[in-house]
Design a protein around this nucleic acid. Structure first.
Lengths: 159, 159
DNA sequence: GTAATCGCTGGACAATGTGTTCAGTACGGG
DNA sequence: CCCGTACTGAACACATTGTCCAGCGATTAC
């Protein structure tokens, strides 16, 4: 569950140049190919690396508008709302958060006008008491993991 | 910028089984290998597919707690705050949103107690007027893109 | 209508990387 | 002191990749 420096370097290298293979990685890291392979296998078994799926940019797909919606749910209807939201393609993720009956979801839309359609669909189910939406204007820090990986590797070193 | 059915099937296939190569993909999709390669190249040039970086699970790294923080920023200090937050490894992403001087960021921490440390570090800069944090309890819909890809492919078909 | 363009097919080739196995070695715990 | 674990360096057959090509059908431009 904890990763060491080599694990960290493997992940960072992989994040920066995903196309390089195990062989090239072993050359860059100065270790044997078998070692890199074994580490990668372990990282995937551990669940640290979930997979290598394609990172798709919603904007390039025609959905340049992102928004976060906070939903207040009526007691006992959480399951219904979850199931409903799972059927909306524009709902990219959904979390339940502290605060009784609160959910937070990430939405995308084709335009600000289209966002209205998406929100209407999202709240188009009983059980949602109130919805507050914040439209994303800038994304100064896109979803990242490398700094955390480096931090985790450092913690391990020290420990 | 718009994707057709074949593009959609390529992305979905790739998302489900990232390890398969171009050749196996062409077999499954019933098209020539060159076609798949050309489509993939185009999707990457388009920016639709940003890359194939490893998907790392913060929980498996020892950061099982996720939270969202809404920050209210003093006028004119946005840049400072952005730069500050970019240096915090536990800040996985940062957005500026509608509502003057509002930001939304995703945080992770080693525990609920550790979250306090992270938040202290996040708000440890002038310019943040107020911070409201919501801890994630469940994640009924993990970050996903496939439904949107399928939707985009369908829209293209109809158009 | 004709020519040019585009995307897809199906095939070929050399070069590279992969999965796998092996023996040898260093390290640390029991 | 012995054992298990992890890493090295090497070997092998095999599959896949990157890169060409010629042919063909459909669409577009003139």
């Amino acid at each position: 569950m904890a990763i060491d420096g080599l694990d960290g370097r493997i992940i960072v290298l992989l994040a920066r140049e995903p196309r390089i293979g195990v062989l090239e990685m072993s050359r860059r890291l100065g270790v044997a190919r078998g070692t890199v392979q074994a580490r990668l296998d372990r990282l995937q078994s551990n669940g640290v690396i979930r997979g290598f799926g394609p990172q798709v940019d919603p904007a390039a797909l025609g959905y340049p508008v992102t928004a976060f919606a906070t939903l207040q749910i009526r007691q006992g209807q959480g399951a219904d709302v979850r199931a409903h939201l799972a059927t909306v393609p524009e709902v990219l993720e959904l979390h339940t958060t502290t605060g009784s009956g609160d959910m937070l979801c990430r939405l995308v839309a084709r335009s600000n006008a289209d966002l209205q359609r998406v929100i209407d669909r999202v709240v188009g189910i009983d059980g949602i008491v109130r919805a507050a939406t914040a439209i994303v204007m800038e994304n100064p820090v896109p979803l990242r993991i490398i700094p955390l990986v480096e931090q985790a590797a450092l913690d391990e070193e020290g420990a």
